[in-house]
């Protein structure tokens, strides 16, 4: 009886280990397929590289010790708004980027803005007391506070 029980247990053990092995190997191939598909289809999903390449053109003009102001018509509560803000912070680091509703934003001489569509960027800046410094393309604009332009 004990031998039968042991043989049954050994059979279950062999089945369990075989099932684990086959499923694990199959799953690894499937997961690799997902990774391959993702890697070939999705590049820079949050436009971080794009923001870096735009900002790299003007980064030398902004001292590294500056707080850079930021405003956007894409609300920060939306994932796209957060992505744009964090991408700007990543691209402009080691400068700290502050949103316009932050207290320390009042001291910012340079401002970065991200728009959702084409419009009069100069006028959007002027409403905040900012002068358009450079349109970086892709609705990303660099401004300078009017007092510091004079």
């Amino acid at each position: 009886m004990t031998e039968v029980k042991q043989a049954s247990q050994a059979w279950w053990q062999a089945v369990a280990v075989a099932a684990l092995s086959v499923v694990a190997a199959y799953n690894a191939v499937i997961q690799f397929g997902y990774a391959d598909a993702f890697a070939s289809q999705i590049r820079d999903p949050y436009n971080v590289q794009e923001m870096e390449s735009k900002v790299s053109r003007i980064a030398d003009r902004i001292p590294v010790t500056e707080r850079v102001g930021y405003f956007s018509e894409v609300p920060f509560s939306a994932p796209a708004g957060q992505a744009a803000f964090f991408a700007a912070q990543y691209a402009l680091a080691p400068r700290i980027v502050v949103r316009e509703d932050a207290g320390s934003a009042a001291r910012a001489r340079y401002w970065l803005a991200v728009f959702a569509r084409e419009q009069d960027f100069a006028q959007a800046g002027a409403r905040r007391g900012l002068a358009l410094e450079q349109d970086l393309g892709g609705y990303v604009v660099l401004y300078r506070r009017l007092e510091s332009v004079r």
């Binding site: 062999a14 684990l20 694990a24 190997a25």
Partner: peptide, 25 residues
């Protein structure tokens, strides 16, 4: 346990696929 080579192959395939996926991603 018997057929110990089976998990050996599974682990090798899994590790190779994992590292390759890591490099791709």
């Amino acid at each position: 346990f018997g057929n110990a080579w089976l998990p050996g192959i599974a682990a090798a395939v899994s590790v190779a696929a994992f590292l390759a996926a890591l490099v791709l991603m």
